[in-house]
Amino acid sequence: MNDAQVLQGRAGETTAAGSVTVLYFARLKEAFGSGQEQIALTPSIRTVQALLDHLQSRGGAWQRELGGSRPVRVAVNQEMARGNTPLSASDEVAFFPPVTGG
């Protein structure tokens, strides 16, 4: 098996298990140095809160920004959501600070 086949196989497994696209905006995007990533759904990551717990467990900026000391809002599929909002494969989950437009 060559490298391309290995990568394809891994990507296929992730798709089979289901993954969500996670977006970060404003202060969070800067703090994490990234605006988007794919995260695989596992039996223990099935809600917004479980995803948040997973992200903060990375420590550093993730713990500082998502650990509860700073206000964070979340949207699932571009609708405001809460910790108990369930996640499904292919959902778009966005984390961001309280909005300041207008």
């Binding site: 905006f25 404003a26 949207a75 966005a94 600070p97 300041t100 437009g101 207008g102």
Partner: peptide, 13 residues
């Protein structure tokens, strides 16, 4: 305007 200020996802730097 009041709802836009609190509901629409814009951020100012």
């Amino acid at each position: 305007m009041d709802y836009l200020k609190t509901q629409a996802p814009f951020w100012k730097k």
